[in-house]
């Protein structure tokens, strides 16, 4: 019961953006995808979520996603896109409820408010979504995604959160809060795949890290295994140094000591 992507290739026109990626994400773990801008992280997530044409195979909890209906997929995984737009003046709570419309067993009326409370925005329920700040909007969208797969395990199957840069507009406190939500979801038996830019948050919260560069998987492993001077410097094309942690062995990267 995991999420397995095998030899994923994606081309936009003649340009091949993903050149054969294999990725296995386990439930119970937070899997982070990192890599420079344009390396294909969002594209990989797009393939995993069947939102763009690709070659290769993706299986979710043992089933090929190619043979699954949209509502079956929606019952097992929720997707937070890198950018969210909203066309009509829905309120915050209405937006969160949109996530429930997949007709799954979890259509419980209290879930949207609990999801909003989880991201610390329960008191915003009646605000218009368009009036929110960038970070608030991002957290509301996360609440929508959480509401869609509220129970991390259902019918013995893990459910999945696929998050594209879930903390990109958040302040440091909310970055920690959102990463904690992701970790809690995984600890409760669900699976999480998160595209990340912040390597330190990745080091703290991810159980597995995939490093993408130019459409290939450069490294895959635990944070300690892959967040190394050599791999990071090659991935990002700048001289990065990973420091030794004072306690508990989590690597950290100070931009101060990097040279471009």
């Amino acid at each position: 019961m995991s999420l397995i992507a095998e030899s994923i290739r994606v081309s936009y026109g003649r340009q091949e953006v993903l050149r054969g990626i294999d990725l296995t994400a386990q439930p119970g773990k937070v899997t982070a995808i990192v890599g420079p801008n344009g390396s294909g992280k969002s594209t990989l997530l797009g393939a995993i979520t069947a939102s763009l044409p690709f070659t290769g195979q993706v299986s979710l909890n043992g089933r090929d996603i190619g043979g699954m209906k949209p509502w079956e997929l929606a019952a097992q995984r929720a997707v937070l896109p890198q950018q969210s737009r909203l066309a009509f003046p829905f309120t915050v709570i209405e937006v969160v409820r949109l996530g429930l419309q997949s007709g799954t067993a979890g259509d419980c009326p209290t879930v949207p408010m609990r999801a909003l409370a989880r991201v610390g925005l329960a008191h915003y329920a009646e605000r218009e979504f368009h009036e929110l700040s960038g970070g608030e909007a991002q957290r509301v969208m996360l609440a929508r995604v959480l509401a869609q797969v509220w129970a991390p395990v259902e019918d013995g199957l893990p459910r999945w959160l696929l998050l594209d840069e879930p903390v990109s507009s958040l302040d440091i406190a909310h970055q920690l809060q959102v990463m904690q939500i992701a970790r809690d979801f995984a600890r409760a038996g669900g699976g999480v795949i998160a595209v990340m830019h912040d390597l330190n948050l990745t080091a703290i919260y991810a159980d597995r890290v995939a490093i993408l560069a130019e459409g290939r998987m450069l490294a895959f492993g635990t944070p300690c295994e892959v967040l190394t001077d050599d791999i990071l410097s090659r991935a990002y094309g700048c001289d990065l140094r990973v420091s030794a942690p004072p306690q508990d062995g989590i690597p950290y990267i100070l931009p101060h000591v990097a040279s471009a």
Binding site: S51, P81, G99
Partner: peptide, 15 residues
């Protein structure tokens, strides 16, 4: 669902 864009509409279960 489409108000959130085509991709998200599909993600929340619309054909």
């Amino acid at each position: 669902g489409l108000a959130l864009g085509e991709a998200t509409a599909a993600h929340i279960g619309s054909d």
